[in-house]
Write a protein that binds this DNA or RNA. Structure first.
Lengths: 145, 145
DNA sequence: CCATAAGATGCATAGTAAATACATCTTAAG
DNA sequence: CTTAAGATGTATTTACTATGCATCTTATGG
């Protein structure tokens, strides 16, 4: 059980933007800072834009910034937006379910319960909580204090 | 985020064995009943045997049976045994962690918390809970009432 | 004691999804 | 009108999961 890198990188990007305090950051800058693929991050930024978490400005001097204050960006919401497939098992999706005992299986309920518990934890936190202590983070990212 | 089919099939196999009430079932029989690959199920049965959930008897008249009563088989334990990789993100594993903000990142803690909440739900249930109402399940699997 | 039916094991292959790269288009600033 | 930025679509690579196949080991029954 893993989250996709998409989700991981999306949260890193948002963290970076939160630490920028409203200034724009370019995708290139963020990719180079974290040492990850610029092309890949483009897709992720696009996803975040479509989901309404970031605003993008094209052209010279452009870049990305948070579309809302950090405390208004829930971590659960970000995960739900980026993680396309939260079907833990085949039978979560009626389209793909081939399991014979589907109708009477209690496992599905249990796994749904577990997933709800997982999401509840993520829904309690916001991006602001992730950058509560900005100083060490800004140092690690080589952002001016 | 998905569980592997390994885990899914392992739980189906255990469910089948629980419904057999101590009688042996062959891997072939279980694979054919669920309509899944026999070869694949062999591997899964082997994993369950190594983890101590089932006993296997080779040779004619052999097969699988639960190594312990259903109420002593925790669902969380099965998931932990079958799901090799519970590293939700890169930074969960110090071996693979390349993230620059690792040391100060609060996300890791949050995701660990969420994973604990998820596991807590699974740890509360046992195989016995999954077959609490055996009749409809036995009918769906075409096991004699 | 041998034929057969079962699991055990290891290797090979296929299928799928994620990650990455590349090319081109659009937009805005100076 | 040049340059720097994001937008978009396609192609490729890679990794992992799932599956298949071949062979070995073990036990039972005739």
């Amino acid at each position: 059980m893993r989250l996709t890198l998409h989700t991981d990188y999306a949260l890193r990007l948002l963290t970076y933007l939160a630490l920028k305090r409203g200034e724009v950051a370019t995708i290139r800058e963020v990719a180079e800072t974290y040492g990850i693929s610029r092309n890949h991050l483009v897709k992720i930024a696009d996803g975040l834009r479509h989901a309404g978490f970031v605003d993008a400005q094209r052209g010279r001097g452009g870049g990305l910034r948070l579309a809302r204050p950090a405390h208004a960006i829930g971590i659960g919401a970000v995960v739900r937006a980026m993680e396309e497939d939260l079907n833990l098992v085949e039978c979560f999706d009626p389209q793909t379910d081939r399991c014979r005992i589907g109708p009477s299986c209690r496992l599905k309920h249990l796994l749904h319960e577990a997933l709800d518990a997982w999401m509840a934890v993520l829904d309690k936190a916001t991006l602001a909580d992730l950058v509560e202590r900005p100083k060490p983070l800004r140092r690690l990212l080589e952002l001016s204090a």
